[in-house]
Design a protein around this nucleic acid. Structure first.
Lengths: 258, 258
DNA sequence: TACGTACACTGTACAATGTACGTAGTTGAT
DNA sequence: ATCAACTACGTACATTGTACAGTGTACGTA
């Protein structure tokens, strides 16, 4: 990766773009635009979904929309950095967010987690999205509002609600990351989990004394040999989800309002 | 990033390198090596700690050890990918792992989390380390063995112990990621948290109706305006750690042996 | 002593990346 | 008819990982 960051960053312009505000100058003069921000962003999302974030290059996006590489900058002046922020907000915006109906809080929080998990499964590149200084577009804010509402009526303080949501989303993100890596590795390395483990075990057996690492040997071997990485991520999600809800339960119990 | 992955990957060779096994051919013929694997790896770690993982290039590492770029491949035949695996194992190996003494399980698990947190703080680039198919060197295995032992005597099954550890480490990783991003952003963007938030708020105020997003506006504004990202990550760690331990507590309660 | 083999070391070259810069063409308002 | 504002794009550059081919060195063998 060349140190090609600049591209005239401008938070205010990015924010206007996110909300598709034509706060931009006039609007009449000059040739009519042959593309839209949305077309560029959608093309980039498609590429990222199908081939991974690394395949999203200015050139590949340009080709997908039938324009020259530099034309992308006409619609996304902030370059690749800004494009990715637009992609993030766009997939958040189009996600489904059913009303809570009569769900109890545990079910609501689990639903938030499940939805995020599904989002990561559909768009693994989202895992790279930073949570600090997120692109505050309609998608991000709608998502935030919805997820905060899952903690309504529990008697938690604003600070605790925010912390609880961060906690839940952090868990989902970490798990999704493992799942995505596990899913991508066999193809990326042209080696199945079983083949990889066999190669490791063969060398490890000659190099490491099981008695020095009894727990690691026993538990690691079971985990490594028995199942593929994908199954493990699945089990980790179910296990972790229960822990997350139980952990929040202790907090909620103390505040009677639930 | 060019698609420059290959570099003759070979899991068995990497594993031998990790354990510094001279299963490599003879040893006598030819000029004596002027470097060692360790010197190369240490140089790379220093660069990553000081300037980030992006600053670790084959060229920068070569310069740090006083060799030509291509000479790095003499010591790390697998190229950059293998170098990073060696870096990961090396920092894990030199971490401090005090005996448990009389600590109770909650204190032990918290210690594991704190140690990992400290490791991420010292080596933020570790956050990028994949948990799937980790480099099974002495560092990784020693760390795994030690951390598993924190769950000794709780009456949990092997599967549950592994899942519990994964859960704890996932939480720490997600939090460390937020913390690292929050810490890096002000310098990387040449903009303080306060300045960023002010710029966002100024535009958002014109573009979004607070009544449409009451929770997001109230809670987000409080979170965004009041404190910097670094403080938030700190609070999130304390909050999350309590939830994690409480969540595990429910599991442990059911198995009387603790 | 001479030689060959196995190694260490390095310079060159290439493809891919993001994007700065400059140019050319197009349109509606004046 | 003119021009400002705009779209569009070709070229060029620095930076990356690493393949490849070559040069030199030191030890074991003859």
């Amino acid at each position: 990766m060349p140190p090609n960051k600049p591209a005239t960053p401008d938070p205010a312009r990015t924010l206007s773009l996110l909300w598709r505000h034509s706060l931009e100058p006039s609007r009449t003069r000059g040739p009519r635009p042959s593309l839209t921000v949305d077309r560029v962003v959608e093309a980039a999302i498609t590429i990222a979904d199908e081939q991974g974030l690394d395949a999203v290059t200015v050139r590949s996006v340009a080709q997908a929309v039938g324009a020259s590489p530099m034309s992308v900058y006409t619609y996304v002046p902030g370059g690749k950095t800004e494009l990715i922020e637009l992609m993030i907000d766009a997939v958040y915006l189009r996600a489904d967010r059913p009303a809570w109906g009569g769900l109890r809080w545990r079910e609501r929080v689990k639903a938030v987690a499940d939805q995020n998990r599904a989002l990561y499964a559909a768009h693994p590149w989202l895992i790279h999205a930073s949570t600090s200084r997120p692109p505050l577009g309609p998608g991000v804010i709608t998502k935030y509002e919805y997820e905060l509402s899952a903690f309504d009526g529990l008697g938690l303080s604003d600070v605790d609600v925010d912390a609880a949501l961060t906690f839940v989303l952090g868990f989902v993100q970490a798990n999704a990351r493992s799942a995505a890596e596990a899913a991508a590795l066999p193809e990326a390395t042209a080696m199945t989990d079983a083949a990889w483990w066999e190669a490791q075990a063969e060398v490890l057996g000659r190099v490491v004394d099981p008695k020095t690492f009894p727990r690691a040997t026993r538990i690691g071997e079971a985990a490594g040999a028995a199942q593929g990485g994908a199954y493990q991520a699945d089990a980790a999600y179910r296990f972790g989800m229960d822990r997350v809800l139980d952990g929040l339960d202790r907090l909620v119990e103390r505040k009677p309002k639930a």
